[in-house]
Design a protein around this nucleic acid. Structure first.
Lengths: 246, 246
DNA sequence: TCAATTATTCAACGTTCGTAGAAATAAGTT
DNA sequence: AACTTATTTCTACGAACGTTGAATAATTGA
């Protein structure tokens, strides 16, 4: 208990980069797990980080939730931070290529684009994932919402994926609202982003506030209302600011 | 260093409630501090919690920032959680009575209320505090924004202060938009809250996104645009939903 | 079959965490 | 002055933290 068997001096395992499964020597399938342990860990981490944030979760909690040894997290992801980043990046490309495609499709198939149409093309793919992407996607979007409103987040890896589609949206809006000032379009996105984030955050706040009249995870209720609200806000902001000396 | 002087058995200090300064025996003023140590601690905690969240801050960091001994935090606030709650509650009543008064004033002084007027009466006091309330208020609003979008926050103590003014706002909007469904007004507030939160969160996100064109702490820029955006969104959402079978 | 590689477990390290008891200091009361 | 109470510091506990090295189990290529 107190005294321990003699330990030799520490020597690191040779490779210190995050472990990505190689083709050779990798077991194809676990005995009874349908998914890879690596993915199990990511799922567990996702479900915990999205509720409590990075600092509110311990690697031991993630390990327990995933049903694996804590050391395995470091084996695959090098560090707790590495795990967190891996969770963020896992679905980042998927969601954003879907959004990019959605906007491309809208742009090329529509003769007369509208503000509402652009915004819908921007967020409809995400709503769909939220609605029918399973718990994984729901947790992921919650996590993104949390990260999006956390100041201390210096996530440059994320902007790499998210910024292009945002600029694409702003580009579309610029065509529909040619008289709008550039900065006003950015401010519109700012407000859009805030409303979207809070919706995905799924805090249950509106449930309490409305005495059960509204449910914060009611995708169908959010869908139409978001479109109406954001489109009108964007249009009016830009039009009224365009008339202003400022 | 290794062996310590013999410690007697632990016995707790008699009082275990949070320490609130009494009238008797309390030193009136510290030697060189202009403010009470208790307030210094709250300020330090506020400035750290609003950036890193509850779990991202240690009591030792707060103590260092405040320039006091770590044990003093437990003396005044019993626990880390007690400190966090104290930070939240310190300014909660102030801001919300100001908002309540602002809406009362608007309601009683205006013959023909508007959606934009109601919303402005709701958030203008907060914008003013954000603009000219000093670092303390700016940090506090950041913290509220963070808490507002954190799912794991079971803050019933906060709702006690914040819910009444929200219901007051919804009551005003109901007068201006009598045809609106009740649930739509709650959804409007939901989106309003999201846009406001992200603005106060001051994440610097829009600064990067716009390449410096917008600054996320530019209160003047936010003020008008918020009013335009939210008023149009609210009006349109309610009007269009009112026409819908649903 | 056997050596090489990968995956997983085990036990523990060194550190930092929140918190507590006791002593010391300061202020107020009488 | 002495006494009482409030404030502050000192020291350190026990637990939990992220992480690691070495050992073991599983899988693969030859």
């Amino acid at each position: 208990m107190t005294t321990s068997p003699p330990r030799t001096t520490r020597r690191a395992t040779p490779a210190k980069e995050a472990r990505v499964p190689a083709a050779r020597g990798r077991p194809r399938r676990q005995l009874d797990d349908s998914a890879d342990r690596r993915d199990l860990i990511l799922d567990a981490a996702e479900s915990l980080f999205c509720v409590h944030g990075f600092h509110g979760v311990t690697v031991r909690q993630v390990a327990t939730e995933a049903g694996v040894d804590p050391a395995l997290l470091n084996y695959y992801f090098t560090s707790k931070r590495g795990l967190f980043d891996a969770v963020l990046l896992r679905r980042a490309e998927v969601v954003n290529t879907q959004r990019a495609r959605s906007m491309d499709r809208y742009e090329s198939s529509t003769a007369e684009m509208t503000v509402e149409g652009c915004l819908q093309a921007f967020f409809e793919p995400v709503l769909t994932l939220w609605e029918s992407g399973g718990d994984g996607w729901r947790n992921y979007l919650r996590l993104i919402a949390l990260v999006n409103s956390t100041p201390s987040w210096g996530g440059q890896a994320m902007t790499q994926y998210f910024d292009p589609v945002i600029h694409k949206l702003i580009g579309l809006l610029r065509e529909v609202l040619p008289e709008a000032h550039a900065e006003d379009l950015f401010w519109c996105y700012h407000f859009v982003s805030g409303a979207l984030s809070l919706s995905f955050a799924d805090t249950g706040r509106i449930d309490n506030l409305s005495g059960g009249l509204c449910r914060s995870n009611d995708v169908a209720a959010v869908r139409k209302r978001l479109a109406y609200f954001l489109a009108a806000g964007t249009t009016q902001l830009c039009q009224r600011m365009a008339k202003t000396r400022d």
